[in-house]
Structures are given as structure tokens and as C-alpha cells.
Amino acid sequence: MLAPRVRVNAVAPGLTIPTQDYGAAQLARLTASMPLERLSQPEDVAAAVVYLAGARASTGQTLFVDGGAGLHDFARDFVHLERD
């Protein structure tokens, strides 16, 4: 065991930097379908990493930064959802 010297945490981002596979209208519909009505931004993911780096009493945790997508059971991968 490496504790207490080593802590292991994870950040699980949702759709953050969409590829060309997503159209503008599809992204708008995906955003609206999220519980928080927003997709994660790179700054959101970075803030989560900074938080966990400083959370000295946390280990073995996964912090989801996904606009609440993890709370919903989507039928398909995002690239196939809300497609034009």
C-alpha cells in the first residue's frame, strides 16, 4: 500500500471538446438534454483536477464533470444522440 504518501483520484469529464462529428444544432440539443443544461468546458475539468490535487483527505474518488450526464441513462453514445 502506498498510502499515505500516494493518493489516487480520477476526473471523469463528459463531452468537453466535440469533434467535427457533432453539428451545432446537435450540440445545442445535447446541451439541453443534460440535467444541468450545459456541457463541461475545459475550465471545468481543470478546476476539478486542481480541487482533487488539493483535497488532501481524498483518495480513491472519481469526480464526474459531465453536466449531470452520469445521472441519466442515455440509450446511445453522445455522437449518435440528437443527431441531425
Rank of each mutant, 00 (worst) to 15 (best):
R38A: 13
D77E: 10
L39Y: 10
I17T: 04
P13H: 07
E37G: 15
A75L: 10
M1F: 11
V49E: 12
L2Y: 10
Q41Y: 10
L2N: 04
V65S: 00
A24Q: 05
G54M: 12
P42V: 03
L30H: 06
G60W: 11
G60T: 08
A32K: 09
P42N: 02
A24N: 02
F64P: 00
E82L: 05
L27G: 04
P42R: 13
L27D: 03
G68R: 11
L2C: 15
S33P: 03
R38K: 03
G67W: 09
T19D: 01
N9I: 09
D66M: 03
D66K: 02
V6Q: 13
Q61S: 14
I17K: 02
I17E: 10
P42C: 07
A25Q: 06
T62Q: 10
V49L: 03
T62S: 11
L81M: 14
D66P: 02
A46S: 02
Y22W: 06
L15D: 06
P42S: 12
M34K: 13
E43V: 13
H80C: 11
T62I: 05
A53I: 14
P13F: 10
L2W: 12
A28G: 07
G14I: 13
A47I: 00
A10V: 07
V45T: 04
D44K: 05
V79L: 14
A12L: 05
S58T: 13
V45N: 12
G68S: 14
A55M: 06
L63S: 03
V79R: 12
P4V: 07
V45E: 08
T16R: 01
D21E: 12
F74Q: 13
I17G: 04
P35V: 14
V6L: 15
L63Q: 03
G14D: 08
P13L: 02
P13T: 07
Y51K: 00
A46T: 00
Y51N: 00
L39D: 00
L30C: 09
